[in-house]
Design a protein around this nucleic acid. Structure first.
Length: 368
DNA sequence: CACTCGTGGCA
DNA sequence: TTGCCAAGAGT
């Protein structure tokens, strides 16, 4: 039962080779990925596919990305076709995936590659980093995975693996430079792309946030966090602040032709460039009087329940008001769109919730 | 550097 | 049920 913890100078240092051996056998099969055996035969991934998957995967689960990746690559098979697509089509196709600045930058990046780089993605970390929507992580990831450059790739998975390997006590995000140095030190010149993907696969399937499967880990003989018997304690993170509640109202108007009143949000900020139903401002306190004054036009608005939606940094509670069927009032209040054609609109999930509260049959995929 | 910026799944 | 969190970027 007694456990011997070796002195640090007795402990072997982590190396890439055992991880790559593990990856050869236990890698995930993903639609945008070239398997390690194919990669060894000289098959190279499509940089367009790697770039698109990496952008979609920013703060987003693999499960959520798969359907969107299939949809985007089927509709726009090359970066040139994406660059020439109407922005509204791209935003509508992205609807539901979240973080909509990614979609705006995806389009801008495609235009830059197609029209300023001859349709060829830059093959260096520095060249990629200069493109819209490509930051420290994505530039390194595309350079490593698509072009086999020895870039130090660090995402949330790698942060977790590294923080445990070295039992780093300093909290994130301040400890990122220290962790990045460790990744750079560990990254091999041979198979750097597979190494990056292996680190992320390890974090996603073995070195998980809760209950890591350390018995199956290729690093379990060198992991300092495992030696402490508390691997789950890492990575240490700074305390996060409470999530405030904002209140507002949303207005669903339907005319006698079965059309609903929609608007386009401003390009910047929350849900920027996406479609919405008319709403009040979202404020910290309810104000019923101003709510009704914020209706898109005077009408016999009827209460139709409420919805709640959690964003990254606040919770939104919307009172829902409904009117119709009515004659569409004169004046420019937005665009009247047939309820049967809402699937083609760039509607974020919170707006679909608001519409579904007033018109339960609006979306065929309503759950329950 | 701290804050903004979505969504759905899961324990 | 509530909180956590998932291949981060831009400002």
């Amino acid at each position: 039962m007694q456990r011997v913890i070796p002195h640090s100078n007795d402990r072997k240092r982590p190396e890439a080779a055992p991880l790559l051996t593990w990856y050869d056998r236990h890698h995930r099969e993903l639609p945008w990925r070239i398997s390690p055996s194919a990669a060894k035969r000289g098959v190279t991934p499509d940089p367009y596919h790697i770039w698109m998957s990496e952008v979609m995967l920013q703060q987003t689960t693999v499960a959520a990305v798969k359907a969107y990746f299939a949809k985007f690559t089927a509709r726009w098979p090359t970066v040139k076709e994406l660059a020439e697509a109407p922005t509204e089509d791209v935003m509508a196709a992205w609807a539901g995936l979240g973080y909509y600045a990614r979609a705006r930058n995806l389009k801008k990046c495609a235009e830059a590659v197609a029209f300023e780089h001859g349709g060829i993605f830059p093959d260096t970390e520095e060249g990629l980093r200069a493109l819209p929507g490509i930051g420290d992580y994505t530039s390194a990831a595309v350079a490593a995975i698509a072009f086999n450059r020895p870039s130090a790739v660090m995402d949330g998975n790698v942060e977790r693996v590294i923080s445990r390997l070295y039992a780093i006590e300093a909290p994130l995000p301040g400890s990122k430079p220290q962790m990045k140095a460790k990744v750079a030190e560990l990254t091999p010149t041979d198979r750097p792309g597979d190494f990056a993907q292996a680190m992320m696969d390890l974090g996603a399937t073995i070195c998980t946030p809760k209950r890591p499967a350390c018995a199956l880990c290729p690093f379990n003989d060198v992991c300092m966090a495992l030696a402490t018997d508390e691997p789950e304690r890492f990575p240490v993170k700074a305390a996060k602040k409470a999530k405030p509640v904002r209140l507002g109202a949303a207005f669903i108007a339907v005319d006698r032709e079965g059309r609903i009143l929609l608007r386009k949000r401003v390009e910047s900020g929350l849900l920027g460039g996406m479609t919405e139903v008319p709403t009040t401002d979202w404020t910290s306190r309810q104000d019923g009087a101003t709510s009704m004054e914020a209706a898109p036009f005077p009408a016999d608005w009827q209460a139709a329940g409420a919805i709640s939606h959690v964003f990254t940094h606040f919770e939104l509670r919307l009172s829902i008001f409904r009117v119709g069927p009515i004659d569409a009032p004169s004046g420019d209040h937005g665009s009247w769109v047939p309820v049967t054609e809402l699937d083609g609109e760039a509607l974020p999930t919170v707006m679909k919730k608001a519409i579904a509260a007033a018109i339960p049959t609006a979306f065929s995929t309503s759950k329950d």
